[in-house]
């Protein structure tokens, strides 16, 4: 592989672009491919098969050829509302995965950079913060403040913009009240029931790292569902 291609992969990844890398296994040539890209003669003959693998986000050797394709997908982004103690543990677990993380909290004393390193922090109300983020259906939302005036606008935004995972921290009682407020806002039962509340899988623990782990387990499971379904 040419060093220029390696540098281009790193750059495209940092720009959150969607692309694939093609390798001709019989001569070692490689090339970057994306929608609308013209192919070199090495790969031109197989452009239909390459496009097919690319559209399905399928990785591997294209049948009957010596061409290997590997897809780099748009990153999955996680918005955490509430720079609270659990968020610190969440970020600690999540750093092992390929998520882009943003923390939103209007409360200044929570969002010091000392507490959250290498994470994007937006020190503002969710409605203002979402104006600065270009969201899509590869986004997940985790609300942690259980304060309606901070969590609710974020939940409204995520439901309207069809985030693939929405989870809200809070007890069963808190969640019943939350659902009632969303109903009054005009969300359907189907939309409301898509929220994971109380958030997380049943792990049986009550400590902060255990709650964070149960949230991460649920998020990763839903992310894997998303990635698997996009391949079908």
């Amino acid at each position: 592989m040419k060093i220029e291609i390696l540098k281009e992969i790193i750059e495209k990844k940092s720009l959150k672009e969607e692309f694939a890398v093609l390798t001709n296994l019989s001569n070692g040539n490689s090339e970057i491919f994306y929608s609308g890209k013209q192919l070199d003669k090495d790969f031109e003959n197989y452009k239909d098969e390459i496009k097919n693998f690319y559209n399905l986000k399928k990785n591997g050797i294209i049948e009957g050829t010596q061409i290997f394709i590997f897809n780099y997908i748009r990153p999955i982004e996680v918005i955490i509302v509430g720079a609270v103690h659990i968020a610190q543990y969440l970020i600690d677990y999540l750093k092992n995965f390929n998520f882009v993380i943003t923390i939103i909290d209007p409360r200044k004393y929570f969002t010091t950079e000392q507490r959250f390193q290498n994470v994007k922090i937006i020190n503002d109300w969710p409605n203002n913060a979402f104006e600065k983020i270009n969201t899509n259906t590869n986004f997940a939302l985790i609300t942690l403040t259980h304060d309606p005036k901070i969590d609710d606008p974020a939940l409204n935004y995520a439901l309207k913009n069809k985030f693939f995972y929405i989870g809200a921290l809070g007890s069963k009682k808190t969640h019943i009240k939350r659902c009632q407020r969303l109903r009054e806002t005009g969300f359907s039962e189907k939309e409301i029931s898509s929220i994971y509340g109380p958030i997380g899988i049943k792990l049986g623990g009550k400590s902060t790292p255990e709650i964070a782990l149960s949230i991460v387990a649920q998020l990763v499971s839903k992310t894997n569902d998303l990635l698997l379904n996009s391949k079908d």
Partner: peptide, 30 residues
Amino acid sequence: MTKSSETILKSANSWIESGQKVTMATVIET
């Protein structure tokens, strides 16, 4: 789903920039 691929690619680049010869192994079929 893991973070590692990004770290590996960036490290390959910095190893090369520091004058080392670098090879990359990729699983292509299982």
